[in-house]
């Protein structure tokens, strides 16, 4: 069993935060089983509703996208009343991504989500590419993220996973992962969109194939330094080869974001290709990628 499986997450393929709509929009493309058993991280939910930022929110650049969506979401209350129950009914394993402007907000979100039926775990967004612009709690030092994780962990039952989502900053990632681990994170997700700019200079985050080598380097270094800490690779996964690169570097699972925006069936294909062979536990089957020549 992989470390993540024993922590209550089968993986190895998950939907990355903010790239699966409300979940509903993904269902037609999720394969024969729909969302059943799919590890889906919601878009980041905040205490209060947010309209999101102005357009253009997402622009294309060679090898990926630059986005500054501004965390549009209906706020915790509305999410609990509508989107979460729908996802649970659809059979998804829901990991709620949370974002706050203060440590207290993160704790509040965790407390209220701990009582909501059907929340399989939390993913703490502490590495957004432009926290200041998005009005989020600013993480400059590893102890900032660690204190958020500790606050969340205190409010959330220890038998359910808390994932720390970190930005793939090669110079700080080992330190950041270690402090989140010590603060109680079950696993670390590496990484978020990379701080970048729109062509007009506005702050945003770069995602897609262009960031894969950066996140891969981070995953490899964290795995080498902290072999007992489960890691989830996130950045540019779009086919079997890019998923396997993370798994080979020691990641227990991968998340798929931008690739879903290009081809909404990506997760279904990867899930099928990486499904644990019956009886042999989770792992990779040496199947060829059904569509190795993705246009991208």
């Amino acid at each position: 069993m992989s470390a993540l499986t024993s922590a209550g997450l089968p993986g190895p393929v998950m939907v990355a935060s903010g790239c699966g709509g409300t979940g509903r929009e993904l269902e037609p493309y999720a394969g024969p089983e729909g969302l059943v058993g799919l590890d889906l991280v919601t878009r980041s939910i905040t205490l209060d509703a947010r309209a999101g930022g102005p357009g253009p929110r997402v622009v294309e650049v060679p090898g990926g996208l630059v986005n500054a969506v501004g965390l549009p979401n209906p706020g915790l209350e509305h999410f609990l009343a509508t989107e979460l129950p729908w996802l649970v009914r659809a059979g998804a394993r829901v990991l709620v991504s949370i974002a706050g402007s203060t440590m207290g907000e993160y704790a509040d979100l965790a407390r209220r989500l701990s009582r909501a039926p059907g929340v399989a775990g939390l993913e703490v967004n502490v590495g957004a590419p432009d926290e200041v612009g998005a009005g989020l709690f600013e993480v400059r030092e590893p102890f900032h993220s660690a204190s958020v994780i500790a606050a969340v962990r205190r409010e959330f039952p220890s038998d359910r996973p808390v994932l720390a989502k970190l930005r793939p900053d090669v110079s700080r990632i080992v330190e950041g992962a270690r402090s989140c681990h010590e603060a109680g994170a079950t696993a670390v997700v590496i990484g978020n969109a990379v701080p970048a700019a729109f062509p007009d200079g506005r702050a945003g985050g770069l995602s897609g194939p262009a960031v894969a080598p950066i996140a891969l380097r981070c995953v490899a270094e964290v795995h080498r330094a902290l072999p007992d800490l489960p890691t989830v690779g996130c950045g540019g996964v779009h086919d079997l080869r890019s998923a396997n690169a993370y798994l080979d570097a020691g990641a227990s699972a991968v998340q798929v974001g931008t690739a879903l925006l290009h081809d909404p069936t990506t997760v279904a294909r990867l899930r099928a290709a990486l499904a644990p062979a019956a009886g042999t536990g989770p792992g990779r089957r040496p199947v060829p990628d059904p569509r190795p020549e993705e246009n991208r």
Binding site: E25, Y29, G55, R57, V69, P72, P264
Partner: peptide
């Protein structure tokens, strides 16, 4: 018509 990066409702990029 506004720019639709995904067109499928997944990205919230078409306000």
């Amino acid at each position: 018509e506004v720019p639709t990066p995904c067109g499928t409702g997944l990205c919230h990029g078409c306000p």
